[in-house]
Design a protein around this nucleic acid. Structure first.
Lengths: 343, 343
DNA sequence: TCACAAATTTATAACGTTATAAATTTGCAG
DNA sequence: CTGCAAATTTATAACGTTATAAATTTGTGA
C-alpha cells in the first residue's frame, strides 16, 4: 500500500520514511526523528549525519502521520462568503495569504460557504474536525458569531474587520472612517454639494465606520449628504443601476458619489454614462480601489486605495504568530489608505 | 493530546473516535469501521445501530488517520500560475471547482507558484509527497511538461487547455478557434477592414487555435489582419497601451480589435478613449468575456462568452471521476461560446 | 580505575484508522 | 440434534510519526 514514486530516475521506489533513514544511518527511528526536528539533546555529529542521509534519499515527512500524532494540521483555512466572489477581494486576499504562507510549510485550504447562513456551520466543522490550525475570514460584524465561536473554542483566527466584543482578538481592518472623510473632502474640493454614498450592508462593522466618517465629514464641511437604505454594496448591480437611474429621472441626482466598492462604482458610472451625465463635469465619484481595474476605465475616477493583498499577507502572518504563541495577547491592525496600489 | 471539544454544550470532551462508538454499542472497533463504510458483510441491524450511535455522539472520522492508513488525502490541489491572478480567471475557476467539490468530502487546496518556472517543482512536490489526490491547472502548452510528469507518474489531473501529446488525458478547453471566427465575423459585419488581435503568449496551445481561427476567418472574408508579436495577454497593461498608442500616433490604427482577455480589452479601450477614438464609431472591439465587468463598462463592447466557472466545475467533476476510476480512459471536453454568462 | 552525573541514544507505546485473516455465530439440510 | 457452510463479527497488525521513559554511552573528578 505504500506510495509509489517514479520521479526523476524512472525507477519505481517506495517513498522513504524515517525508518529508511534510520536503516541507512544505523540509528534508531526516534533518533532520526529528533535529529530532523532539531531536538537539543542530539549530538551535532549525529544531526549532520541524519540530515545528509535524509537529503540524499529525499526523505520528506509524511504530513498525515505527523498530523495524526501531533494534532497539527499545517493547514490554514480561508473561509469565503458567497459575496466575496465579486471581483478582486477574495483574489487579492488569497494572493496576500499565499505570500505569507509561502516560505512556511502551511497549506492554504479554501472553504467557500455557498450561503451566508451556513458559514457558521462551516467554521464549526473546521473547529470540531480540526481541519485546520487557524481560520481567516472577512465581513466581520460588531457581535460576530464566528468570532464568538472561535474565541470560545480557543481556536486561532484572524478576521478582516473589527468587532465590538469585549474580548480582544486578532484582526486586520482598513481605516474606513478615514477613507470616507478623505472621499468627502475630495468631493467638496471639487465643489460638490449633494453627496451620496453606497455603503456596505448595515450589519457589518465597517458600515458604521464608513457612515460615521461620511456623515460627520459632510456635516463638518457643510454639504448635504445621503446614505440610501435601499441599495448597498451587496446589492445586485441592476438594483444599484436602477436606484441611480430613478434619481436622475426624478431630477434628484446627487453630484458627488462616495463608493466603497469597485463594482458598485462601475455600475454607477455606467448608469451616469447611459444618461449622458459626465463624470468630472456633471458629477464626481470617489471610489475605493482594491484592484487595478480603474487604471483601465475612462473617464478616470478618483480613488482611495485599500490594499487587500497586503491585508491578506498581514492576516497570514498574524495567524501564524497566534498559532505558535497560543497564549500571547491578541492585537489588531488598522490599515491606512495608500497612495499607490502595489500588488 | 486528544483534541478538546467545547462546541454547543459548553462541556469539555474529547473528540469521539471509532473506539468511543465501539464502546457505546458494545461492538468491536473493526465492526464499527466497516459498518460506517458500508461494508457488505455487516448485518443491516448492526449497521443501523452503529449509524445511530455515531450520529448521536457526533462521530466524524479523523482525516489524518484515514489518510495515513489509506493513502487517500481527500484533497484536490489547484495549482495557480502567477498570471492567473489577473481579474476573474482563478476566481471563477475556484468558484466552479468549489461547486464540484461541494457535496463531496474533498477539500480544495490552493497552491500558488510565484514564478512560472517553479511550477513544475510545485507539482513534483505534490506528487512526491502525495499532498493531494488530484491536480488542476491551466495555461497548457502543446508539449506541456506538467502533463508529461503527471502522466508518467499516473497521477490524476485535469488541465485547462489541450496538449499535442500522443497520450490522451483529461482536459477542459474552450473552442478558441470558434471564438476567433465569430469575433472576426462580427467585426466584418460592422464593416471593419483592418483587424488586430491580442493573443496569448505563443507558447500556449490556445494561441494556435486562436491564431488559426483569426487568420483563416479574416482571409476567408477578405479583410486585412495582424497579430502583433510585441504584446500578448500576459503583457503589462502599460505595454499594450503603449503599443496601441503608437499605432494611433503613426496613423496605422486598426479599425477592429479581437481581444482574448478582459483586461487587455479594457486597456485598449482606455487607450482609444484617451486618443478620442470612439468604440462603435471609429473602431469596434470584440472581447472574450469571462466575468461580468463588461456589463458595467461604457461604451458597450461586443463580447463572446467563455464560462470559466462552468469549466472549473467540469474539471472538478472529471477529476473526481478520474480519481475513482483510475483505469478508465481519459477524455477531454471543449466548451462552446455561450450567449449569456451565468455565474 | 571507579563512581556518578551528564549527554546521548533507544525501546515502547500511542495517535485513529483500515486490511487481513481468524474466530464466532447463524441458518439450514439431513 | 448434528454438521457444515454462510454470514457476521473480531483480533491483530500496520500506516509513519512523536512523546515518554528507560537504557546506554561519554566525560569528569577523585
Amino acid at each position: 500500500m505504500g506510495t509509489i514514486m517514479k520521479l526523476g530516475t524512472g525507477a519505481v521506489t517506495k517513498r522513504p520514511t524515517l525508518k529508511t533513514v534510520a536503516e541507512k544511518t544505523g540509528l534508531a527511528v526516534t533518533t532520526v526523528s529528533k535529529a530532523l526536528n532539531g531536538a537539543p539533546e542530539i549530538a551535532a555529529k549525529t544531526r549532520l549525519l541524519v540530515e545528509n542521509a535524509a537529503r540524499e534519499i529525499g526523505y520528506v515527512p509524511d504530513r498525515a502521520a505527523q498530523r495524526l500524532r501531533t494534532g497539527k494540521t499545517n493547514v490554514i483555512s480561508l473561509v469565503l462568503s458567497p459575496h466575496d466572489e465579486i471581483l478582486g477581494f477574495s483574489n487579492s486576499l488569497t494572493l496576500g495569504l499565499s505570500r505569507a504562507l509561502r516560505a512556511t510549510n502551511y497549506n492554504l485550504l479554501v472553504t467557500p460557504s455557498f450561503e451566508e447562513s451556513t458559514e457558521i456551520k462551516t467554521i464549526e466543522k473546521i473547529v470540531r474536525n480540526k481541519m485546520a490550525d487557524g481560520i481567516i475570514f472577512s465581513r466581520t460584524e460588531p457581535f460576530d458569531e464566528r468570532v464568538r465561536l472561535l474565541i470560545e473554542n480557543n481556536f486561532p483566527f484572524v478576521c478582516h474587520g473589527r468587532t465590538e466584543l469585549s474580548s480582544t482578538h486578532s484582526f486586520v481592518d482598513f481605516d474606513n472612517e478615514e477613507f470616507a472623510r478623505l472621499a468627502v473632502s475630495q468631493l467638496a474640493n471639487k465643489n460638490r454639494k449633494r453627496l451620496f454614498a453606497v455603503m456596505p450592508d448595515r450589519k457589518f462593522t465597517f458600515y458604521g465606520h464608513l457612515k460615521y466618517g461620511f456623515t460627520s465629514a459632510a456635516a463638518d464641511i457643510g454639504v448635504s449628504y445621503e446614505v440610501p437604505d435601499d441599495v448597498n454594496l451587496d446589492s445586485a448591480p441592476e438594483e444599484i443601476y436602477a436606484c441611480i437611474a430613478r434619481r436622475i429621472e426624478k431630477g434628484t441626482c446627487p453630484d458627488g458619489f462616495v463608493c466603497a466598492g469597485e463594482v458598485a462604482a462601475m455600475t454607477i458610472m455606467a448608469c451616469l454614462s447611459d444618461h449622458d451625465l459626465l463624470v468630472g463635469r456633471d458629477v464626481d465619484i470617489v471610489a475605493k480601489q482594491t484592484s487595478r481595474v480603474f487604471d483601465h476605465i475612462r473617464p478616470r475616477v478618483d480613488t482611495i486605495i485599500e490594499n487587500i493583498a497586503e491585508a491578506g499577507a498581514m492576516m497570514g502572518k498574524m495567524l501564524l504568530d497566534d498559532i505558535s504563541n497560543p497564549n500571547a495577547p491578541r492585537e489588531g491592525f488598522v490599515q491606512r489608505p495608500e497612495s499607490e496600489l502595489l500588488l
